[in-house]
């Protein structure tokens, strides 16, 4: 049913659950593949560069975080591609989803804390509203 899946992740343990569901979904269709997308926003750039020294080491660290997801999907025998994008998380995910040819988007429901969600709004909520394809939100 869904051949090209897009899995949006924030690298958190919670979004690992979304990855498991994406694998379940991919297993339903012969030859399905998953693209893993991770968005780096401005404040994350600042704290990551501070913590890891420069942009290159920060990028390397992010790939390490994502390798957990990548290994999990590959381990289930599903082809996976990893994309790291930069910008506002919700907007970037929405644009990336709508500009490319995906059949379904899988997102976790929660990464931000309650306070952050109150001020910034929920990323998954915004994404649900604006993408043009079916969305699976994993609670």
């Amino acid at each position: 049913m869904f051949k090209n899946l897009l899995l949006a992740t924030d690298g958190s343990e919670h979004s690992l659950r979304a990855a498991e569901r994406a694998i379940d979904l991919a297993n339903l269709t012969e030859g399905a593949s998953i693209e893993l997308v991770y968005v780096v926003d401005g404040s994350m750039s600042k704290s990551d560069v501070l913590q890891y020294g420069d942009s290159d080491s920060a990028s390397k660290k992010r790939e390490e975080i994502l390798s957990v997801f990548k290994d999990k999907i590959e381990g289930a025998g599903i082809p996976v591609k990893v994309s790291i994008l930069h910008g506002n998380p919700a907007e970037t995910i929405i644009n990336y989803t709508n500009r490319n040819d995906f059949d379904c988007l899988v997102v976790g429901s929660r990464g931000r804390s309650k306070v952050q969600t109150m001020i910034l709004g929920s990323v998954s909520h915004k994404v649900m509203k604006h993408v043009n394809i079916p969305v699976l939100m994993v609670k």
Binding site: V40, D48, V49, G53, D54, S55, A58, S59, H86
Partner: peptide
């Protein structure tokens, strides 16, 4: 130079 690294990272350029 710290800011330059942060902008490098935000724009994915050098």
């Amino acid at each position: 130079l710290l800011t330059a690294s942060i902008v490098d990272d935000m724009t994915d350029t050098e």
